[in-house]
């Protein structure tokens, strides 16, 4: 169970990111969406006391935010990497500001110790997500058009289909899924801490590349990262300093990227 628990946020965020990859851009704001939704969920839960309301309202707000993000990016013809970075930056600013306004703190928001949050259903969602995504991409109209959007905008335009819809919706899907990942983290911790996603959003991006932009590849990428994470939690109890362990996944990722792209170059040259 531990391994699935560790995999869930990665799976949600990276499969979400995969949709934007299919639409032809990279959503570098996954980290921001995870943190933002964790914050929204805990805040709304603390205020209303309702589990259901916490999730729905947080997701509705995330949909709204990701819509604004993608709509402006498309309509202003902005560089999506830059706007993604801007969203990350803006979200962290917004979170601290609202947190300070509401709770007079910029640190951790705790829920009551007796709170029990059921997060197991999110694990199930995360585990069926790769297969569901394969089905959507290969068998449905939305999937076909999404893939085409990523390859050629003009093809859609010449068929009189609005290409912007597919890019905007992809960012919203990735926002929702990354948001669920963030909510999952908040449920596990029963609190919000400012650095709750701890680089998971960025690692999810890396997993997408590592998994060659394929749902099954991504599943195994998540597996590898979860194992290292569990291992690092485990070895923290041993003599290895935690900082070195924290640096490990980043270096491992880079090595993995080099190894996978090396084979790719060979393949192309043959």
């Amino acid at each position: 169970m531990d391994i699935f628990q560790a995999m869930t946020p990665f799976l949600l965020a990276s499969i979400g990111g995969l949709y934007t990859e299919y639409s032809g851009t990279t959503n570098v704001a996954i980290e921001g969406y995870m943190t933002m939704s964790a914050f929204l969920f805990i805040t709304i839960y603390k205020i209303t006391g309702s589990y259901f309301l916490g999730i729905t309202l947080a997701l509705i707000l995330i949909i709204l935010l990701s819509f604004i993000h993608s709509y402006l990016t498309v309509k202003l013809k902005a560089n999506s990497i830059i706007t993604g970075l801007a969203v990350n930056m803006g979200f962290f600013g917004l979170i601290s500001t609202i947190e300070f306004k509401l709770f007079n703190t910029k640190g951790v928001i705790f829920l009551e110790r007796t709170t029990r949050l059921d997060s197991s259903w999110l694990i199930v969602v995360a585990l069926i997500l790769p297969l569901l995504t394969m089905f959507i991409i290969n068998k449905t109209r939305y999937g076909l058009r999404l893939r085409i959007r990523g390859i050629s905008k003009k093809t859609l335009m010449y068929s009189n289909i609005n290409p912007d819809f597919y890019r905007i919706s992809a960012v919203i899907v990735s926002g929702i899924l990354a948001g669920l990942g963030g909510i999952f983290l908040a449920m596990e911790l029963r609190s919000f801490i400012p650095n709750i996603s701890a680089g998971r959003g960025w690692i999810s991006l890396v997993i997408i590349y590592l998994g060659r932009k394929h749902p099954i590849g991504i599943f195994f990428g998540c597996l590898i990262f979860s194992i290292t994470q569990i291992f690092s939690n485990f070895s923290q109890k041993m003599a290895i300093p935690s900082d070195i362990i924290l640096a490990f996944p980043y270096i491992l990722t880079l090595v993995a990227l080099i190894l996978t792209s090396r084979t790719k170059v060979k393949k192309d040259s043959l």
Binding site: L76, A78, N79, I82, A86, G93, T97
Partner: peptide, 22 residues
């Protein structure tokens, strides 16, 4: 005020400035 006001303003600025249309 909190110090993050400038972060929010900067992100808005950042966002708009990357616009090709503008």
């Amino acid at each position: 005020l909190t110090i993050e006001v400038s972060t929010i303003v900067k992100s808005v600025l950042f966002f708009v400035i990357s616009s090709k249309i503008i």
